[in-house]
Design a protein around this nucleic acid. Structure first.
Length: 112
DNA sequence: CATCTGACCTAAT
DNA sequence: GATTAGGCCAGAT
């Protein structure tokens, strides 16, 4: 059986998040089998800049995690908007564009 | 070894 | 809304 690193669990799980859907750091941690470790997700994303779907990760309150005047902030806004996700004041309405049960079920099928 | 820091979260005020 | 306090944990100091 192959050993899967923690960061690998996170990146593979994130890669399954569909376009037009966003997740919080905490949600992603849970789905990757690392409950309560939202902070670790942040560390992983910071490490490498080429993680698939990195832009679909937001804070639990829907806010983009970067300061407003940064380049990354603008890029994330741009990418989300191009996917049909409304970003208002650097913030996404998690109620409308956030997690849906069917998608949750899909990701929950991940086994490591 | 102690403390600080951070792409974080929840609950309570 | 905002703030505080506690939780989380790998790295840096």
């Amino acid at each position: 059986m192959s050993e899967v690193s923690l960061s690998e669990k996170i990146t593979t799980t994130l890669a399954l998040v569909p376009s037009g859907v966003v997740v919080s750091y905490g949600q992603l941690a849970d789905l990757a089998g690392l409950p309560g470790r939202a902070r670790y997700v942040g560390q992983c994303l910071k490490q490498t800049n080429d993680i698939v779907n990195w832009h679909r990760v937001l804070r639990s309150n829907g806010h983009i995690a970067f300061p407003e005047n940064t380049l990354n902030y603008r890029i994330q806004c741009e990418k989300l908007c191009s996917e049909g996700v409304d970003v208002v004041n650097g913030r996404v309405n998690m109620k409308r564009f956030g997690w849906r049960p069917d998608i949750y079920t899909l990701l929950s099928q991940l086994k490591y």
